[in-house]
């Protein structure tokens, strides 16, 4: 078993200075550069960012799912008292699926095409609960009913290609929740779905989260999704959390120039007829990050201090945490 590390009672996930490096032929890529956060039981954190910002890699690092021979993960990751980065392969496998579970973006490719949905859920239950396959199937049926798959009994024997996208994602959720995990990681679970199905899946996830009291880390690039499901938002850019705070604070009073750019470049809440603004430039090359703030090359408010060093996280009075040199001086009202 894993060594139990004493931790403050309230947080179930503790991440400190998490960095991930991929070593490849074309040099070292750094998708995650010093991410730190903690998550309380029953809390929903949404990691918001564009493609390549390191959201999915962060999730995978939490479960140590990245190919070990090409990846170097440093920092500290603690999930339900288990030190994830130091755990043995065997104890990591015991942790995956039972304590911390993941929903993937593409339910079509995330299921094994040659086994039935029921088999794939039952297999996981049998692995973690030490029960027979038959008992696992009973649990699988229960789970499919919980995620509201119509005629669940029949779907148990369906192969992944025989289900629609929405049903597949429901089955994926059933799979992920079948061993009652305490932490659920959701990697853009609605991105591959139709808009109407998206809303259903989001509602389902939200109600299951409240019912089962799990902590959820939800990764998305969709502001609307983020606003819908989460308690807290972390805006990610080039492998760092540039702004974190409650949903209301971050979406209503964004502080970091990147967050503001992101909000003004979406159609949500914009008056009709106003031209959408875009953020000029493109994200930095993760092989050679600038020495200072990684958003500085695209930022309209950049000053010399931005280029000198990576801005430390400033905590504002609202509780928002922002990595921008402008933040404390401009926005914290003087006491």
């Amino acid at each position: 078993m894993l060594t139990q590390i004493p931790t403050q009672l309230s947080s179930i996930v503790d991440v400190d200075d998490l960095t991930v490096e991929f070593h490849g032929r074309e040099g070292t890529v750094r998708p995650v550069n010093g991410v730190a956060f903690s998550l309380k039981a029953g809390e929903v954190l949404c990691i918001l960012g564009e493609s390549g910002s390191g959201k999915s890699v962060t999730l995978r690092a939490l479960m140590r799912l990245l190919a070990p021979d090409r990846t170097r993960i440093t920092g500290h990751v603690e999930v339900a008292g288990h030190d994830v980065l130091k755990a043995s392969g065997r104890s990591m496998a015991a942790l995956r699926g039972s304590t911390i579970s993941m929903i993937f973006q593409e339910p079509m490719t995330a299921f094994d095409p040659v086994y039935t949905i029921g088999d794939q859920i039952a297999e996981m239950v049998a692995q973690h609960k030490g029960v027979s396959r038959r008992a696992g199937r009973t649990r699988a049926l229960e789970m499919l009913e919980l995620v509201q798959v119509p005629s669940a009994k029949r779907r148990l024997d369906a192969y992944p290609h025989e289900l629609s996208g929405g049903l597949r994602q429901r089955a994926m959720i059933a799979l992920a929740l079948s061993c009652s995990p305490r932490v659920l990681l959701a990697d853009e679970p609605t991105t591959a779905l139709d808009a109407t199905v998206q809303a259903q899946i989001l509602l389902l996830l939200r109600s299951l989260q409240q019912e089962l009291g799990m902590a959820v880390i939800f990764v998305t690039h969709d502001l609307g999704v983020a606003a819908e499901v989460s308690d807290r938002i972390a805006v990610m850019y080039a492998g760092r959390f540039v702004e974190t705070g409650s949903v209301r604070d971050v979406l209503q009073d964004p502080v970091h120039p990147y967050t503001r750019g992101l909000l003004s470049s979406t159609v949500h809440g914009q008056p009709r007829g106003t031209r959408l603004q875009t953020i000029p430039g493109s994200p930095p090359d993760l092989r050679m990050l600038p020495p200072g703030c990684s958003f500085e090359p695209r930022c309209g408010e950049a000053i010399d201090r931005c280029r000198a060093a990576i801005p430390p996280p400033y905590t504002l009075k609202s509780g928002q945490c922002v990595r921008c040199v402008h933040a404390p001086q401009d926005l914290v009202p003087a006491e």
Binding site: L65, A93, L95, F104, E106, T109, M124
Partner: peptide, 25 residues
């Protein structure tokens, strides 16, 4: 190289369990 292998690992299957899926595929 398929994505579902990652799911199998995320399910907490042992390397032998993963192999069972790989063989059938």
């Amino acid at each position: 190289g398929h994505e579902f292998v990652q799911t199998l690992r995320a399910k907490g299957l042992s390397e032998r369990g993963v192999l069972r899926h790989v063989v059938k595929n």
